[in-house]
Write a protein that binds this DNA or RNA. Sequence first.
DNA 1: CATGAATGAGCATTCATTCAT
DNA 2: AATGAATGAATGCTCATTCAT
Lengths: 203, 203, 203, 203
Amino acid sequence: MPKDQRVPEQDASGAPARTLRADAQRNRTRILEAAETVFAAKGPSASTEEIAQKAGVGIGTVFRHFPTKESLLKAIMHAVAVRLAEEARALAAEGDPATALFTFFTRTVEQAAEQKTVVDLLAQAGIPVTVAKPVLALREAVEVLVGKAQQAGAVRPDVRVPEIMALLIGVCQASLHTPWEPDLRARTLAIVFAGLRPACVTG
Amino acid sequence: MPKDQRVPEQDASGAPARTLRADAQRNRTRILEAAETVFAAKGPSASTEEIAQKAGVGIGTVFRHFPTKESLLKAIMHAVAVRLAEEARALAAEGDPATALFTFFTRTVEQAAEQKTVVDLLAQAGIPVTVAKPVLALREAVEVLVGKAQQAGAVRPDVRVPEIMALLIGVCQASLHTPWEPDLRARTLAIVFAGLRPACVTG
Amino acid sequence: MPKDQRVPEQDASGAPARTLRADAQRNRTRILEAAETVFAAKGPSASTEEIAQKAGVGIGTVFRHFPTKESLLKAIMHAVAVRLAEEARALAAEGDPATALFTFFTRTVEQAAEQKTVVDLLAQAGIPVTVAKPVLALREAVEVLVGKAQQAGAVRPDVRVPEIMALLIGVCQASLHTPWEPDLRARTLAIVFAGLRPACVTG
Amino acid sequence: MPKDQRVPEQDASGAPARTLRADAQRNRTRILEAAETVFAAKGPSASTEEIAQKAGVGIGTVFRHFPTKESLLKAIMHAVAVRLAEEARALAAEGDPATALFTFFTRTVEQAAEQKTVVDLLAQAGIPVTVAKPVLALREAVEVLVGKAQQAGAVRPDVRVPEIMALLIGVCQASLHTPWEPDLRARTLAIVFAGLRPACVTG
DNA sequence: CATGAATGAGCATTCATTCAT
DNA sequence: AATGAATGAATGCTCATTCAT
């Protein structure tokens, strides 16, 4: 029945498997943005109604796009996961292997300080077998970074990915509850990074 | 017929500045215990009714003692803070200065893995100027531990308390979202501890 | 470029007094069929959206043809009424006057067991002055059947149409709530038919 | 914890398995009454809010007593079932065996004409194995009536209970959709009763 | 003081209906 | 004409909080 011009999906934004009319696409984006903002500010218990309002759409529109509050949350998580994974891959491709992991770590923590959502995502990215594809992609990207850092001798060879993820999650979480005074974040990360580097003679 | 012997408040339990009838005091304690259990299991969104039930009292009794759900949460946080501070002080008094901090850190993380409440507390204990007395007491106790560890040469002298608190919070939070496989926790802590120890020749 | 040949309305399908484009007519039919199926299965609380989907048209199209859910329901009722009236007339024309009424009665009940819609229709066909033409047509057709049955001596002369309609409605309704075990329906109808036949010596 | 005077449950009113404070009992009754009225008028799709309003209580109170809309409906059904079963038993005990069944039948239909709820109940009392106890009790009471009527020779011996229930349901349903003109109900019942009575010589 | 019934604002979700494309 | 996205009132249900018993 469709006689309208479909729009190819730019999947980078954690989007649905369907093609949408232009205006629907626009609304979908606005809803996601609003949701990201609101959830970031108030956590996942924020009301769907508020999101609809902030997005400037009716409540029904939100539920047409995301049939469940949880599905909306998931969509945002995916978007964030995709973004982080891209950053990780970019750093792995271009950056200095010896510092890329640390850079990624630092940037992610910086984002987390402002975006509760990043933290919530990472919470899901935890260590166990996570199902969602974008989250897995993120973990794989981090694995690459870790591998390169170890080959470059910047990270001890016996360190494994799970504990790095745990630390990443942890510092991000901490940043939520910590109005990092100017360089507290830097000092905290310095400790973690020092712990990751190969030891020397440690008498 | 006075079955009304007043009881002085034992302030260690983060209690109110009033004296209570013996049975009231008993109820207060039962409510706190129930709340700690329930909140630990389900997080702060657990329903007040459930707590009342577990405590074996009516809802009204809960609200008589804690006029707000939030005030109940706060009371528990205080209790936890007091407990942790005591552990810290005990370790500072008795333990080996070189390891006491690490021991405290490890124990706290272990508790956090089971007690969501510990994590929530630490979140409040963050870095900024926290008002609540018990929380301040906790931070002071940690300061002592850090000081001793530094004097013993077990922690780098330039490390300050705020970043240690941040790491403590972080690893605790992470433990919530991480079904720590057998020794993941140990490996994660190892990295943090390595980062805290004095470096050697680090060229 | 007129692909616009108007088509006169075949009123037998309970349709509107307008002429429609050929494709519109086709859609109208598909919607009615879908609605009959869906309403038959789920009753009148079925969602309009589901009907649109089953008909393979957009929601908007449904509402263009039937400006209200109720109007759609009414249209279906009419269609069913027309069908039943036709059956009644056919039986009156061809069948044995002594049994035609009973046959019609039986067939209708059989249909009702599967088609909630038939029951709903009959509910409207009740006894009072019903406005809708197709429903009146049905009642007239039944009147003919009754008249012939009475002339044939198969039905007591003092029986009137309203109570027959009431019984028809009733047994149909009952069939909805009664997983007729093999011949329960037959036994139930037998009682009704026995009640309709002329008594004998009844002392 | 309870220190208040409990009230023994008068189970005849389809009541819960709990004892209630006097005021709660009062509210429960008012809710049931309101619900019976409202459901009778608008069918089971009537809104719970409306019932609360009519009962003069808050919405929360309704849900405290009946945690689900369906549970409320069920409670009413039970109450009706109990009432009908009592009428049946009373007639079986005191009445003339030859007419008791017919009297019960007639009375029930009379009630149904005004109380949609009676009809809805009977719909559930259908023929199959119904689980709810009060409904079973009703069917058993009817069985007794039928048995006595057959022993008295007022009902043909080959008639079984299921078809009588089906007819009862049917006529009740019909009465809902039929503003029975003065004696239409009587004439309809006359046919059913004639069908139930032993035939004579029926040539 | 203790109790638990009552309250009602708040929330996720559905669905008939409207309207821009 | 057809489409399906948008709308928002309505609904069932939860839960912190109040208050009569």
